[in-house]
């Protein structure tokens, strides 16, 4: 474990940036649904585009485009990947 890692929430990501899921702080139905889609700790995820009004945001996960609202994405924590690391 690197100590200096910055943990952000998924909703803070800028467009086009890659990151890796650290933890999910969601609960209930939504949490299960997110896990079902393969958004689990360790998964690589890229922020692709925002809706016409800035919300929801579409993320590329495992080759699939999935849209999430910012409130939900705010509860998913990620580690930003620098350019040298593996991309999605």
């Amino acid at each position: 474990m690197k100590g200096a890692e910055r943990i952000n929430s998924l909703s803070d990501l800028s467009l086009g940036s890659d990151c890796q899921i650290v933890s999910l702080e969601l609960s209930g139905l939504l949490r299960r649904r997110i896990l079902d889609l393969g958004i689990v700790p360790g998964t690589l995820i890229r922020c692709i585009r925002r809706g016409p009004s800035g919300d929801p945001t579409a993320y590329m996960v495992r080759g699939t485009l999935i849209a999430l609202r910012s409130e939900d994405a705010a509860q998913i924590f990620v580690r930003k990947l620098s350019n040298g690391e593996e991309c999605v």
Binding site: L30, T64, A67
Partner: peptide
């Protein structure tokens, strides 16, 4: 509860 959305955008 406020709602949520998980939407798949297929190719």
């Amino acid at each position: 509860e406020p709602s949520s959305l998980v939407l798949e955008l297929p190719s």
